[in-house]
Design a protein around this nucleic acid. Structure first.
Length: 153
DNA sequence: CGTCTTTGACCCGCGC
DNA sequence: GCGCGGGTCAAAGACG
């Protein structure tokens, strides 16, 4: 797995098809899920990767996060976020960045923990969380949040 | 010796 | 208020 989360960022699903080099394929479209459960706070669109295709990251969306109630009257904090599922035995996928784990929590209604990582490059605000799919442990759900302020590795 | 994991405590918003 | 759920901190240890 090697891609940069700064690449191919778009703001909506419709913008996605206008990205140069991006092609909507049937299997991708069928794979889009609208996850709106308690697992993820916001409604997040993510592609489901077919086995053997995890090496090719074709496109993604940005989730415009709702203004966090934590932000209280302040300026609305906009955070880019996207997630995807990957069929994988291991959850430590090398995506070209260096991550430092800073938390682990059990998810409600699931036996699987969720892991919290932060990009270990100084000043870089990017976080990701990794958890195993509740109803199909063969899949790993990775959620990226933020944009790297540097090149990978 | 610096960096990363581990893990319980802590914080905060929300619903009851 | 209080408890719960999701997210984060930080002290201590592991590891190279």
């Amino acid at each position: 797995m090697s891609y940069n989360s700064n690449q191919h960022l778009t703001t909506s699903e419709s913008d996605l098809s206008e990205q140069p080099g991006f092609e909507f394929t049937d299997w991708m479209f069928d794979g889009w899920l609208n996850e709106n459960s308690s697992t993820l706070t916001d409604s997040v669109m993510y592609p489901v990767y077919q086995e053997g295709e995890v090496d090719e990251f074709v496109g993604n969306t940005i989730q415009q996060a709702e203004p966090s109630s934590r932000d209280h009257g302040r300026e609305r904090e906009v955070r880019e976020r996207f997630a995807f599922k990957t069929k994988s035995e291991v959850e430590i996928l090398d995506d070209g960045f260096k991550w430092r784990k800073y938390g682990k929590k059990m998810v409600k209604n699931s036996p699987n923990p969720r892991n919290y990582y932060k990009c270990s490059v100084e000043g870089c605000p990017v976080k990701k969380r990794v958890e195993r799919d509740r109803e199909d442990p063969k899949y790993v759900i990775t959620t990226y949040e933020g944009v790297h302020t540097h090149e990978s590795s």
